[in-house]
């Protein structure tokens, strides 16, 4: 009954740090993606413009240094979220049957987040590998790549995954950390879906410019 009778305080902050890091790496990746989208979007102002932008990052060493830094964050984020991803079959089956049973939007959306996350893990690694192995970045190279074989499908799937993962990720952070309250939940969700749509649109335009 007494407050003082409670066992000696002996707890660990680790889980809290992990959870915080998960959110922070997530936000960082989101910010990166938004910047990245705008940078790539420079293609619509012509190859020259794109090349100039690329050159700037190239010459300052930003391209590969941030690339490596990013890769680390990227993997770190994966490792953190892996704590939540159901890897065992029983867990997957439980989640699946539960999602089917209650047929509840936000529960389904979490599944979408996990699946897109795994797509990003694979495609992102390939993408970064390809880009960083073939520096410097130029519009022409990108165009060639895009027009070659199935790469355009690769990018379309990739961009959809990234956009959704980003939108849902921000929603999740908002909900989990109390920024999105029951009052503004529906509204926030709407705005985040608008963000996802906008991202898809911008990225698709860039892709189109590369493709043609």
């Amino acid at each position: 009954m007494r407050a003082t009778n409670v066992r000696k305080i002996n707890f660990s902050n680790t889980v809290a740090y992990l959870d915080l890091s998960q959110a922070i790496t997530g936000i960082f990746l989101c910010l990166f993606m938004l910047t990245h989208t705008l940078l790539v979007f420079s293609i619509i102002f012509g190859e020259k413009c794109f090349n100039k932008v690329a050159l700037f990052f190239e010459s300052t060493g930003l391209a590969w240094s941030s690339g490596i830094f990013l890769t680390i964050i990227f993997l770190f984020h994966f490792l953190l979220t892996a704590r939540k991803i159901p890897f065992s079959f029983t867990e997957q089956a439980k989640f699946w049957s539960q999602a089917k049973m209650i047929n509840h939007q936000d529960t389904w959306l979490w599944l979408v987040q996990v699946l897109t996350g795994i797509v990003i893990l694979l495609f992102g690694s390939i993408h970064i590998w390809v880009i960083l192995n073939d520096l410097p970045i130029t519009a022409l190279k990108s165009k060639h790549l895009m027009q070659k074989g199935g790469w355009v499908y690769f990018y379309v799937l990739f961009l959809f995954s990234v956009a959704f993962h980003l939108g849902l990720g921000l929603y999740r952070i908002g909900v989990k950390w109390g920024f999105i309250t029951s009052q503004n939940r529906l509204k926030s969700k709407k705005y985040l879906f608008i963000l996802v749509g906008t991202l898809i649109m911008i990225d698709s335009i860039s892709l189109l410019f590369f493709y043609f």
Partner: peptide, 10 residues
């Protein structure tokens, strides 16, 4: 920290 914000509870 185990809660994943699924909100089915809510």
């Amino acid at each position: 920290f185990g809660c994943m914000g699924l909100l089915a509870c809510e």
